[in-house]
Simulated assay, not measured.
Amino acid sequence: MNVSNSSNATSAPIEQYQVWQKVFISLFLTVLTVGTVIGNSLVCIAVGIVRRLQSPSNLLIVSLAVSDLLVALLVMPYAAAYEVESYWILGRMMCDAWTSLDVLLCSASILNLCCISIDRYLVITRPFDYALKRTPTRMGLMILAVWLISAIVSIPPVFGWKTEPPEGHCIITQDIGYQFYATIFAFYLPLGVMIFIYYRIYTVSSRIAKREKRSQPQLNNIEIPLQEPSAANGSGGGSKSSKKSKSGHVSNREGKAIVTLGVIMGGFTACWLPFFILALIDPLCRQCIPKGAISFFQWLGYANSFLNPIIYARFNTEFRQPFKEILLCRCRGINSRLRNLANH
């Protein structure tokens, strides 16, 4: 969501940067935007062509990647031009469209993360019951809910719940009521849900790990095969794994997913929390925020869309190797090569 770069802006925009600063900022923001496009495109392509990644839960990851990809394509280029030039030249109609897309796509990215955390929580706490319900249809309904809620958050200014920005500027409405409405439903409420759910995931996982550690001497090296929820679902990409375990065990695959989710949530909070704090302060006290702070934290929030694919590549081996193969343009026969690598 975009907040004014300068709360004290007058009707005549003043350029903030010298020429060399404009060049540096343009290059940096271009690299950030292009990197975001490439990274999130890799996620979409990988899930599209790699059979083992085509599980219902990864539909949520694709939805997240699509929202981040659209942020890079439809929001970041205009935000970069506005930042460098310090004024808006595309007219009021384009301004309204851009700010609405900003709110819609950033909200969708955040709510997709919230749904991913809920999905992982149910996998850990109800592994077998949830496996039967974890169908593509249900995941599709969750994704539909994400985008509908995002639209409900973003659409009110289109119907008049807004204040007009100063001439030459394009900002999301500074109406206090809308700012509270949008920030609560687009950020603070999903953040609270994610923190609670990840805390529950951590406590449940820790409890299971301690129980297994105490029970290992009594297992006498008996291996009990467990089926991944995705395999039980017949969703493709799932496989059977053998572990010294009891029912309800957290598999290595799901354990890695938990770590990945934790890192993603940490990055998300670090990137977006400062901006949404300022988003509430700015309408109430426009003299309280240093010049340039809003711009910096706005782009820090956009950078979260750049970070998510990097986190998958670093912490999730299921995505790492497909990313390498796609970047090397070795998409033909990718499934057989990945299968051979997994067997070794």
Rank of each mutant, 00 (worst) to 15 (best):
A9N: 05
A9E: 12
A12G: 00
I14K: 15
V23R: 07
S26N: 08
F28N: 06
G35E: 01
V37P: 05
I49N: 07
L53Q: 05
L53H: 07
N58Q: 09
L69P: 01
L73T: 07
V75C: 06
A79H: 08
Y87V: 02
Y87F: 14
G91T: 03
G91S: 05
M94L: 13
L104H: 05
C106D: 04
N112D: 14
N112I: 02
I118F: 14
D119R: 00
T125N: 10
F128A: 05
D129S: 11
T135D: 06
G160L: 03
K162R: 15
E167Y: 08
D175I: 00
Q179R: 15
F180Q: 05
F180V: 15
I184A: 14
I195N: 04
I195Q: 08
F196Q: 03
Y202T: 15
A209S: 14
K210V: 10
S215K: 09
N220P: 00
I222V: 15
P225L: 07
L226C: 08
N233C: 14
G236L: 12
S245I: 01
G255D: 05
I258S: 02
I264R: 02
G267Y: 12
P274G: 06
L278S: 02
L280V: 06
P283F: 06
F297M: 09
W299G: 03
N304K: 04
P309E: 03
F315I: 04
N316S: 12
E318K: 12
R320P: 00
R320W: 09
E325A: 08
L327P: 01
L328R: 12
G333K: 00
I334H: 05
R337A: 11
